[in-house]
Simulated scan of single mutants.
Amino acid sequence: MNILILNSGSSSIKYQLISMPTELVICEGLAERIGSDNALLKYSTNATKLEEELAIPSHKAGLLKIADLLLDPSLGVIKNTEEISVVGHRVVHGGKAFSDTSLIDASVKEKIKNLHALAPLHNPHNLEGIELAEEIFPNAKQVAVFDTAFHHSIPAVAKKYAIPEEFYENKVQVYGFHGTSHKYVSEKAIEHLNQKTSKIISIHLGNGCSITAIKDGKSIDHSMGFAPSNGLIMGSRSGDIDHAIIFYLVETLGYSLEEVNELLIKKSGMLGLTGFSDLRDIQAAAEKGDKSCILALQMNTYRIKKYIGAYAAILNGIDAIIFTAGIGENSALIREMVCTDLEYLGITLDADKNNTRSKSLLEINKTDAKVKVLMIPTNEELEIAKQAYRLVHA
């Protein structure tokens, strides 16, 4: 069974075509920096590797490019769309409605649409991918895997906000995000630790960033909340901010609510601090002495360290911390800055190991460290494929 996985992020689309249940990857690729004139399109199979810089103005344009590559007479891996049995979609926000993987129908699409306001950088692109996939692959079953599902185990003490009960009843609560990634890498870490119980802090660092406290394989707290905008400093999202600032912007500086929303989600974070949203550009400028970029890196990692300390407290100790996703896997500098001066918690980094490139799980802590520091490449696509396969074979 061929399952096509579409993983639409805020500025990227990762995709894989996987043969299940063997988990054989037939092709994979990435469209990143979507919305720019120098977007990058990657496509690879056993026989072909393509990397092209081009304008990809929207997620829809990116999805159409990907479909063209899959069906290309010389480069493609399928002759017709009927060779795709299932299309698995990452959907960021499932609200209270979805605690598990779901077959997509009109009702599911409507519920996803109703959650657009809670994940405006993601759910619209996720739904767009679903509707386009229905057109391109009309005979395939469409399956949604929700990022919020993994976090349904968060207890009320961490899930509820300190506001009147009626708001909780109206679905105002912590939902949590990047759950597919946190689930995948934490399971890899648990397997690596090979112990009956585990206390893990999983740090997902990409254009969107989040951190999760995981006890015995279950999420018990998470940095993002009602929508995927809280917590860590991100590419263009502010993360944690005093809500009084919103009132000040509206009542004193004359911003509309729509403008404030745009500001905090699309114009803040590392972009607001430096003018760049891509960490590679920020690191390059910092190396040349750019003070705003140096400070932004310090602020970014300072925020992560605060959460590590908080989660060490609620877990009552740490067995391992995980770095994953684009930045977590590739930025030795960020890992070093996060782990510096955390000896009190038992976290000590081995500089040589930290600077080693790996496509699989890598321990980067010192040999005698009390806490394992793990770099684990996430594979949300494989996790989505496994969940989709289980659903259609249930």
Results as ranks from 00 to 15, higher is better:
2 N>C: 14
7 N>F: 00
8 S>V: 01
15 Y>D: 02
17 L>G: 06
26 I>E: 05
27 C>P: 03
28 E>W: 07
28 E>N: 12
29 G>Y: 08
33 R>P: 07
36 S>F: 10
36 S>H: 09
39 A>G: 15
42 K>V: 12
53 E>D: 11
60 K>V: 13
63 L>G: 10
64 L>S: 13
65 K>W: 01
69 L>F: 15
73 P>Y: 13
84 I>Y: 09
86 V>M: 04
86 V>C: 05
88 G>A: 15
91 V>A: 08
92 V>G: 03
93 H>W: 10
98 F>P: 00
101 T>R: 04
102 S>P: 01
112 I>N: 01
113 K>L: 10
114 N>P: 02
119 A>S: 15
127 L>F: 07
129 G>M: 01
133 A>Q: 05
134 E>G: 15
137 F>T: 13
147 D>S: 08
151 H>C: 12
156 A>G: 00
161 Y>F: 15
161 Y>W: 09
164 P>L: 09
166 E>T: 14
172 V>E: 05
172 V>H: 04
175 Y>A: 03
183 K>W: 06
189 A>I: 02
190 I>H: 01
192 H>E: 14
193 L>H: 03
197 T>S: 15
200 I>Q: 01
204 H>D: 09
207 N>P: 01
208 G>W: 02
212 T>H: 10
212 T>M: 10
217 G>K: 04
218 K>E: 15
219 S>L: 13
221 D>W: 04
224 M>R: 03
228 P>D: 12
229 S>Y: 15
230 N>K: 14
236 S>E: 02
236 S>W: 01
238 S>Q: 11
240 D>P: 00
240 D>S: 10
245 I>Q: 09
249 L>W: 05
256 S>I: 12
261 N>M: 10
264 L>D: 04
267 K>W: 01
275 G>H: 06
281 D>F: 02
284 A>W: 02
287 E>P: 08
295 L>A: 11
309 G>T: 08
309 G>S: 12
312 A>W: 01
319 D>T: 02
320 A>I: 00
328 G>W: 03
335 R>A: 03
336 E>P: 00
340 T>V: 07
341 D>I: 10
342 L>H: 14
345 L>P: 04
348 T>L: 07
349 L>F: 00
352 D>R: 08
357 R>I: 12
360 S>K: 15
361 L>S: 05
361 L>I: 15
362 L>D: 03
362 L>E: 03
365 N>K: 00
373 V>L: 06
375 M>W: 03
379 N>G: 06
380 E>V: 09
385 A>E: 04
386 K>I: 12
388 A>T: 07
388 A>W: 02
388 A>R: 01
389 Y>T: 03
390 R>W: 11
390 R>C: 14
392 V>W: 02
393 H>Q: 13
